[in-house]
Nucleic acid binder design. Structure first.
Lengths: 127, 127, 127, 127
DNA sequence: GTGGTCTAGACCACG
DNA sequence: GTGGTCTAGACCACA
């Protein structure tokens, strides 16, 4: 059972990818833990199995999971897993920062926003 | 002549929109300054005029520029312009922060990244 | 028109991937050259467009080509392209060598085989 | 006890086949030596007995082993054994070479790689 | 017309 | 039952 909700206009397979990636990096999916079968996730989310398959394939190719045909898919035990996700998040942060700069946002404002969000997370986070 | 480079997988009209928006918010395009003609921009960037037209239309609809039929398009003098862009950048920042949290990036790291990027910008930035 | 023939039991999308990769690394497809449209290749080879799409997607993700939605797919001008293919070929060579060792093939034999194949290529190669 | 490790995406029964084949051709399994029982190998490797059975069946059908019903399986004493494996390894080498050529790898590089791998094997090889 | 996404449904080898 | 591949056909935003 994957606690993922599809919403917004982003491609479903991408939302699935990010969803699983977060479950892994936040530790809610442990290394070597078995992921639900492609068909099962598809049924649960009311989505075509091919779409789930696509997400799983990209997760494997990114080293976040490994799959043994006819056995199932499993969370990759590699150290790379978590760090790959962190690296991606950091990359997005840098883009957002560069955006902010050219939009005239000051560093102080950014830090204020960071403080606010992190304190929100401490109080109401669901991790 | 617009100093905008198209790159990445985002829709061209969107890149154009953001490009012009940044030129405005950073002051490189002054209030009431005339924008290059649609056909001209299209030729310069090797892009379909329809695409440029779409970007201009959205810029106007967002209040960042105004157009005088048969005369051209001009940068809006309204105060709303810059602040609208700032608000959007801040919204994206918040999303990126939420992402970073669930990927296990600490607040300290985020601040470090912010310091780095802002100092890069001071020294070699093209803003 | 892509000079690729499908044969054997390997996945079609993989044969396509390798076929295009070789056309690029051998220079028969020049940097920034436009690749035939997904649907066109599909028709030419009597294959489903989705299958071609999958191959193109993986080629892009490997940095061998880049695609501009609604415009087409193009050979990547990056230096990485050729070297990525070379690296892959070398990886396969190493596997084959390790195989040969544990099968009792001597280094001298391997070199003999290399000599033979390279001289064949010089005389009858179609590059 | 078979010193074989399963890894990669190849079918398990094929990895088993190759594993045993190598143990034979490298002499670690002597002619007429008894192979571990199917059930035992299955338990040791955490694999379905059917899978091991399939590998054994193909090994027998290839003449590398022979089995005496209700007694067990034994390494074939025939001369063909080692040479069959050698031939297969050589076939794969030729394919890898042809690949390397069309990827622009030079004969000299190939020989360098060969030197490197053979010296690695001499020093730290597990053959 | 282009690449990209998605569905529905099928088949396969493997375990 | 599992992942993986493939087909057929549809829809979309973009250019």
């Amino acid at each position: 059972m994957l606690d993922i909700r599809l919403e917004g206009k982003a491609p479903i397979y991408e939302q699935l990818y990010n969803g699983v990636a977060r479950l892994i990096s936040s530790g809610r999916l442990a290394p070597d833990e078995k992921l639900p079968a492609v068909r099962e996730v598809a049924k649960q989310l009311g989505v075509n199995p091919n779409t789930v398959q696509k997400a799983y394939a990209q997760l494997e190719q990114a080293g976040l999971i490994y799959s043994m045909p006819a056995k199932g898919s499993y969370v990759s035990p590699e150290i790379h897993a978590a760090s790959a996700i962190r690296a991606e998040a950091i990359r997005r942060l840098e883009v957002a920062f560069a955006d902010a700069i050219s939009s005239g946002v000051s560093k102080e404002e950014v830090i204020n926003i960071a403080e606010k969000i992190w304190s929100d997370d401490r109080n109401g986070g669901n991790s």
